[in-house]
């Protein structure tokens, strides 16, 4: 009988590879983009890549009771919550920056340049 549970599953290295690629894509965005909001979005992508490795390790290393390790998922919960707080503060800073400088492009923000 064909069910979803019978489909082949991916191994740990495939999950780690995909998470690493997501991190690399996020890093590319942080380095290359000039719009500070998109730089911020790419930072969120990098955080999510870390979350994916945590969830993958938690599922692939079962705890003593034979269940997925709950500690990894707790860390993901905390990371997501802290990221939410970080986004709120960061976007408020961007709005304040736009108010005082009328730009959000990183190459035009040269106040600290000597």
């Amino acid at each position: 009988m064909f069910t979803l549970a019978n489909l082949p599953t991916a191994g740990l290295s495939q999950y780690l590879l995909v998470a690493g690629l997501l991190f690399a894509i996020g890093l590319t965005g942080v380095v290359l983009r000039r719009n500070i909001i998109i730089v911020f979005m790419c930072l969120e992508l990098m955080l999510s890549a870390a979350n994916l490795t945590l969830i993958a390790f938690s599922r692939f290393n079962l705890d003593a009771k034979g269940l997925p390790d709950v500690h990894g998922q707790m860390l993901v919960f905390f990371v997501i919550t802290v990221a939410a707080a970080e986004v709120a503060v960061g976007l408020a800073i961007i709005v304040a920056l736009y108010r005082s400088r009328q730009t959000i492009y990183t190459d035009e923000l040269t106040t600290l340049k000597g």
Partner: peptide
């Protein structure tokens, strides 16, 4: 990403990924 979480039996993480 939430689909991958749910595929790893982390249903709660997948749901809060979508919600939050």
């Amino acid at each position: 990403l939430a689909g991958l979480f749910i595929g790893l039996n982390a249903y709660f993480a997948g749901i809060i990924q979508i919600l939050v």
